[in-house]
Amino acid sequence: MVKIKFCGLRRIEDIRYVNILKIDYAGFVFSKSKRIVDKDSARVLIENLDPEIKRVGVFVNEEIDFVAEIVNSLHLDIVQLHGKETDEYVDTLKSLLDVEIWKAVRIKGNENFIFQRADKILLDTFVVGLPGGSGIPFDWNSISNITLNKPFILAGGLNHLNVEKAIEILRPYGVDVSSGIETDGYKDFEKMRLFVEKVRK
């Protein structure tokens, strides 16, 4: 079954919603974003999260010491890198932390999808000035015949109206959504429920 990640969780209501829906991954943003959470706020959210849901920290071009502090303090399961982090950066993280690492690739043309160091690849839409969370899908057919050397998570403009088609075309390991399950910038339980229903269908 395709895995589901909800990203940009920042309210206790968001945690209640994901616990009800039993998704696979809960994402918390620790870099500059309208969905950013600080360590103390994230701790409260994670303490209330169903322990079977994996905890993902999202970072963009952060110092390794900062990432390590957040991971160790909050006992995160996964680090999602959404900036220009190099393979050497990933190697250093792996030497310091016992976590899975995802590396985002922003689709804009002929990308190099070979990331030997990251455990999984996250495919997102390229938008100038935005590392992610744009709410804009890329052309899924443009990469439908590319063989990736790692499991991949599909992101970028997904919602309950298009996620079935995206899965049909690309057959991803998982799907990642943030703005597509929001209304007026906040997580919307009905949109979340519909998204989960479409994916699991």
Rank of each mutant, 00 (worst) to 15 (best):
S41C: 14
E88Q: 13
K39D: 13
E88P: 10
V71P: 06
K94H: 09
I4C: 04
S33P: 05
L170T: 11
I12A: 11
I121C: 00
F30I: 04
E47F: 13
S41R: 13
L148Y: 03
E182L: 07
K5C: 01
Y173M: 10
V175C: 02
G185K: 03
F138C: 02
G57W: 01
D87G: 13
S178R: 11
D77C: 12
K39C: 11
V67N: 02
N145M: 09
G129W: 04
N149V: 13
D65C: 14
V29R: 00
F59M: 10
D139Y: 07
A42R: 01
N141R: 10
N149S: 14
I70V: 14
E13I: 09
H75G: 15
Q80K: 11
E52G: 15
E168I: 11
N19R: 01
Y186T: 14
G109N: 13
P131I: 07
A26G: 06
P51R: 13
K103Y: 09
D50P: 12
V127E: 12
V58F: 00
N112A: 03
L122T: 05
L21C: 00
V105G: 05
A42M: 01
L158R: 10
K54R: 11
D184M: 08
T86W: 11
K150C: 06
I70A: 04
D139H: 07
R117C: 12
N112C: 08
E197V: 15
S134E: 05
R43I: 09
I53D: 05
R193C: 05
S41I: 13
